[in-house]
Design a protein around this nucleic acid. Sequence first.
DNA 1: TTGAAAGCGTTACCAA
DNA 2: TTGGTAACGCTTTCAA
Lengths: 335, 335
Amino acid sequence: MAFRVTAFDVAQRAGVTQPTVSRALNGSPKVSDETRAKVLQAAQELGYVINQNATRLRRGETMTLAVVLIGRAGESATETNPFYFSLLGSVAAAATARGYNLLVSFQDSPENFFGQYDDARQADGMIVIGTTQNPEAWAYFRGLDHADKAWVCWGAPDDDLRWVRSENEGGGRIAARYLLDCGRKQPVFIGARTSQQRQFGERYEGFAEELRSAGIVATAIEVDETLSREEQGVEAVRSLLQSGQAFDAIFAACDLTALGVLRALSDSGISVPEHVSVIGFDGIRAGNYSSPPLTTIEPDFQQAGDLLVQNVLNRIAGEPLTERRVPVQLVKRGS
Amino acid sequence: MAFRVTAFDVAQRAGVTQPTVSRALNGSPKVSDETRAKVLQAAQELGYVINQNATRLRRGETMTLAVVLIGRAGESATETNPFYFSLLGSVAAAATARGYNLLVSFQDSPENFFGQYDDARQADGMIVIGTTQNPEAWAYFRGLDHADKAWVCWGAPDDDLRWVRSENEGGGRIAARYLLDCGRKQPVFIGARTSQQRQFGERYEGFAEELRSAGIVATAIEVDETLSREEQGVEAVRSLLQSGQAFDAIFAACDLTALGVLRALSDSGISVPEHVSVIGFDGIRAGNYSSPPLTTIEPDFQQAGDLLVQNVLNRIAGEPLTERRVPVQLVKRGS
DNA sequence: TTGAAAGCGTTACCAA
DNA sequence: TTGGTAACGCTTTCAA
């Protein structure tokens, strides 16, 4: 930990006072070009970089957003739903574009729940994403939801939180339309419609709605919410087959579930898409590599990141929330 | 942005002075239990949280590590090699375990290259991970490598940087042994042995070494480093087939390449593992969903995160680097 | 065991 | 346009 250069050192070298250094480096218009040049050169020569802790203490703002990624308890890094990593990347891009830093934490159990980044002045706002399969975590964050706290989440188990979500109903309709266009007559929805994950219910609604308009009554297989998303797909196919119910298409609530479905169908000797069409939701990369590649409904990730950041910045500024629905599109692959 | 509670407010309520509040909250032994209890209660009642900017300014340390994830220029969030997301998750876990926060940034082009987190007192150290397919980024970070800077990277194109890596040679040997045990006689390595990614060369070395001890001369298909990892696999299979060279096994330098290989073989009507065995390296989740599921060499992610964090903390403390090789293991799946 | 006071390195206000 | 000075909210040294 070497000697650190301060604005005073730069000031001395440039032959000005320290506040002038500050003004010059912050692009204040009330500093002469000549002075600015001197300061810039001195700063360069000394390798001076503004100490952000001092800046933040003084300004009261951190230019940092905290991102909390909620995982299932005990989940390892490889087990995290890749969807949230993509979301994280998009949020990072959107934050960077607006000049914000990102403080990231992975939280999965009560010992490490923490959401007071604002109070601690570590961040100006917070974005919470991740699985709804960790009710304790969501309970914790809901407890933080005081009126003056700037935070926004993705998905959210409860409608009263400030969320950004996919256009789930529209996506559900697109999925239904796609399966109908494939000539399917007996589509089944697999996923926890009534789960903590409100988005699943929305997807089902759109799906059922579109089928209804085609004169078809949607059926759904409820799943055990304590299983992993993938196992939910496997189990659902198992119970579907056991029930003897006829089906020729499956709309899975999310891609991981769909990949489980694909595996279970394959294990049962049912070929996709010959016998059964399968469509998922999320657009995760792994869907590219399944056999057949997974057809899916993919949200616009860039928009997702943008809207999350934009909404939390609006909260910080005390402005109202803006658009909170992320458009989705059909990605046709092989299933 | 409401009124913020300070240690003075807590002090007043508790009937002590502000420094006592600080001592009590920081667990100083030189404060009476009675006083501490009063302070804690007052803090609780007021919802007081220590302002980290003030703490950091005063202490000079941030208890934060910066993680830079380098991507290919223009790469979107879904295109990032999921291996790095797993690594990020592991680093996050290791950092949290040691009481450190994580500042994360995704960097892919010169406009957003930034590595002066230490100078700016935004972090005490830095961990750089991500693709070696962005030479400008690595050139930038190499330029930062002054003797007193605390940063460590994963992989690294150059041996002179401070890196943590997989046990690549050992992994290469395991891959060769596995293929030999499958009864394969003509294994081929696919990947850029001489690429910026030094780890690939190491994997090849171990692979060739083990084959040599079995009396087999390793062959390798060089690839175009400007292609994506996956396309590298596709192209390599294409040129392998064109060359007419006989082969019955492929060791791909990384899993994404292996997935490309799998796809290309499938497209050519070559069945895996009947005609050709395929093994990759990285242990990414998508390998679970390919057809057949991808056999691979997987590094111990937890250790990887641990070693990265541990080494950067050692650098901060001015201590020597510790162990820098992450153990790997064979993950047999279907290929 | 506690209090008084200094200081971390900026930004911003007020004068000049 | 620049300089002097206060203030941001803590931690730490020194006295009591």
